[in-house]
Design a protein around this nucleic acid. Sequence first.
RNA 1: GGGAGAUUAGCUCAGCUGGUUCAGAGCACCUGCCUUACAAGCAGGGGGUCACAGGUUCGAACCCUGUAUCUCCCA
Length: 892
Amino acid sequence: MEISKTYNSAQAEETWYQYWLDNKFFKSTPDQREPYTIVIPPPNVTGVLHMGHMLNNTIQDVLIRRARMLGYNACWVPGTDHASIATEAKVVALLKEQGINKADLTREDFLKHAWNWKEKYGGIILEQLKKLGASCDWDRTRFTMQEDMSEAVIDVFIDLYNKGQIYRGVRMVNWDPEGLTAVSDEEVIHKEAQSKLVYVKYKIETSTGSATDEYITIATTRPETIMGDTAVCVNPTDERYAHLKGKSIIVPVVNRVVPIIFDEYVDKEFGTGTLKVTPAHDINDFNLGQKHKLQTIDVLTQAGKISEAAGAYVGMDRFACRKKIIKDLTEQGLVVKVEDIKNKVGYSERTNAVIEPRLSMQWFLKMDTISKPALDNVVNGEIKLIPDKFINTYKHWMENVHDWCISRQLWWGQRIPAWYDNQGNTVIAKTKEEAIDLLKTKNSALKTDDVRQDEDVLDTWFSSWLWPITVFDPAVIRNGKDNANADLNYYYPTNDLVTAPEILFFWVARMAIAGYEWMGEKPFSNVYLTGIVRDKLGRKMSKSLGNSPDPLDLITKYGADGVRVGMLLCSPAGNDLMFDESYCEQGRNFANKVWNAFRLIQGFEVATVTSSGVEMQQSSAQKTAITWFEQKLSEQLEIINDHYSKYRMSDALMTTYKLVWDDFCAWYLEAIKPDFIDGKAQPIDKATFDATINFLESLLKIMHPWMPFITEEIWHLTKERSQKDCIIVAEWPKQLPTLESKQLAEFEVCKEVIASVRNIRQQKQISPKEKLALIEKSEAQHSYFDDVVIKLANLSSLTYTKDKVEGALSFMVKSTEFYVPMGSNINPEEEKERLSKELEYNQGFLKSVLVKLSNEKFVANAKPEVIAAERKKESDALSKIKAIEEQLAVLN
RNA sequence: GGGAGAUUAGCUCAGCUGGUUCAGAGCACCUGCCUUACAAGCAGGGGGUCACAGGUUCGAACCCUGUAUCUCCCA
């Protein structure tokens, strides 16, 4: 069979993914084995795969595949999130394109459109994950708004309400005037902006009630809220304004008379040291207003336009009004100056609209007591954050946590199960019938038509915080954890969670809270936090910049295995990664290398007798290489396992990469490769061939989590396999019980000798085909690796001598000298120069060692093994120097 | 403004408990090779004042202090 010189990824990916599905290798059901569980961070149902998903899900797939091979019952639960704001915005935009206004639709009609859209386009991202090779148990696919999951959310609301943890109240919330909803603190992104600080003159009113000519000047970045001013505040210690006690101020534009109040809150240094107080439009002003019992005038509408209450500029957009008002005030001579300043402005994470602090009636969850276990168990290490530098951030946040605003003024989501009558009664109930029954106890005259359900839905995170629980058993909230189903009992708590640090608080912290609240136990043991994928200039990848490659294009170009390797080669945990396509190229090249190693092995002709009829013998070089590589494999496997245990993914991958490329391909295969005689490859003996196949299989297994497709492909090409004999379920290799470190060290010497000979070839322009003689100055007569040296350095002979050899180039490995006889082909001057340099270096080295050893404090304080090492260095250096001096003497 | 972290080769990063000539890896680079698995390759090689300034120590990339620059989080 002719096998292609390059690996064809597309075909293998298609074939094997389907094969894995058909044979249900991703499927997990509870059994005797220990479970290993990951729940996917559910991507937004409207999402398409981007580089962040690629990174995140590749890591999860690597973890789950390795766990599967280690014999765990590996279960990776996939699913999507309904993402209320983002999805609703998307659907609204789409309807608009079709000429449909959301405002013209009833709630039911809108939801019908939204569900249609979800059925049609939602979950594309899950199909894309399959291209990556994600080995999720697709039968378990969940959606946060499917019926039973939603019911659990309502159960949770009711449970918390009954526990007294949920309340409703008027609060200052972060209002998104575009999404027309409140958003949580965590959904506000503060960005630095260039703003104008406007200095406006406010007239002071006399005690008799008439206006004076006296003014005070107030600095504000938000002149459009002037109409909502209900006081002016100064610091009581500010002498500049002490005389204003008891006086009033006339608010420009609306000519409202408001008091001057005194409060420590005002910063004397900022602006003019005076503050206009607008309780409806700033959280701090709101607090001042509460304290000083001020009137609250809301001058903005939900959409961010000037409201009727303002009494001027009604209907104008807030930013247009800002400009206009500055212009008008300037014309009236009331503007002293306008300064450019930098300040932080909050933007909505979802719609990018400037957030407006706004008073409104919302539902809140008390966070102080419920969040306690989630804090304690991260601090005490019960839940591990990787890397652990995030513990501080987490702790800081959890210690300063605010009550969670859980209501959203949207339709797409779980509707709040609060019901009202026309008498101001409120009850919490799962159904209208229950609500009516409950309301009747408060209002005997209740008519069914008087019962209204709350219009708002719950924050998306209020459903996704249950994810690790409800994907297994959505009924557990109402049944209680003691009545959990078999799945939940078996899979919970999950093992690893892989996610972005951006949602540490949104999601991770809240899952921990929910876990302790309803399961009495952590939801996961380890949280691996990935970085943000940036381009090589360090810019975040984004649609608007157009600097993000399409992951599927990359897969087409480099193969899924290549892209997976490429992503993970440059992904330190918790640090951003500077992605560049060249990493994928490196990944593809590695896959190709593996492919060609396989081609070589597969092309070996196994024979019991040679072409001349003699019985095939394993050569000494082959024997040595096998002995060595068996050790090497075990040694590196231990290192790889260790990297995994510490979640050092890039390190585990790089160790694998070098084991395969350098140790196996460059050294082992070269050492055992049969010679060519008369242009014909010699056959290989069965023992060497079998050992090689075994090594290859072990390596394929170690590579499998990173490169699932090519390893499965080769696995099936190396021999006939039964249907279920697949690498995806093969057993992870085991280490040797003991390691012969002496053999490993000796082989390193062997490599060094070979490299030195090759170096001489390079320097002297000697063709690799020309055989050279090598003489070792040693008491010994033979090393176990001699034949490997002969083969790989292409020697005619390797002999031993006790005497110096003249007319030869020399090199040293450790403290042993080697000679390559050159006849007259030697330039003594060049040699002298080289040797002198080496002598100088070694003398310098010796000196530094001697300085250390002659330092009494060093000898007295350093650990014995450190001192012993220094003494060894001393003696090695001395013998090296002696040898070089002897060589120089010969040349002179 | 408060907090966390970073700064090591051209690039991306390791360097774990201070101790080997400890200054490392991969990529990139340079030189020579189309050597019968692989040019998506092989062989060999060069390259860093470990951000800066002090300090602790017999010994510092590593610990401490300060400075600079950058990133992130929070207000």
